[in-house]
Amino acid sequence: MMRAFRSELLKFRRWSVLAGSGVMILATAFIAYLTFHQITSGATGPELTPLIQAFPTPQGLITVVGQARSLIIVIALIMVTSNIAAEWSQGTLRNLLVREPRRLRLLSGKMLALLLGVSISATLTLAISAALILAAAHAQGISTAAWTSSEGMRTFLSSAMRCSVSSASVCWEC
């Protein structure tokens, strides 16, 4: 299984994998910034009310960044399924099966590597989006003390962890 895992890691160099992570980061950062902009520009509306309430609290940062949570999961799902589908349609799966005929070992090693990749991608996405929002808040002179307080950081980290794990587990379940 570890052989299949290490072999799969080498394939992360493909541009399609990098593109998937890139889309995840850009789309999440964009949505987070849009939410931030709506709140700070004083827009109102029924969907925005809970966000505006949470904004100044320690949960503020993760609430803004987490707006794209379902998008992250969807992109992660696409990355994993398209990877396995491509092995099949390109015909590269048979090369792998000749070198590792035990299907279960091959698949579990591959899934382990893919889930690790997806979790790293999701974590990176949340970190970059959070950094962007913090920078934007600084630029506009908005206090971020509640977000960067120890409680704020703890909330952020545990929510971020949950998000990457859930994106990985959704992929696993399908």
């Binding site: 052989r3 080498l10 160099r13 493909r14 390109q90 090369n95 792998l96 000749v98």
Partner: peptide, 29 residues
């Protein structure tokens, strides 16, 4: 102990020739 070339050989087009082989070298140890 068996090497095989089946139909038209298939590879990961965006990976280099060397990496393509390394993927299988890792898998077969």
């Amino acid at each position: 102990c068996v090497g095989a070339l089946i139909e038209a050989p298939t590879f990961y087009p965006s990976l280099s020739g060397r990496t393509n082989l390394e993927v299988l070298a890792h898998l077969g140890d």
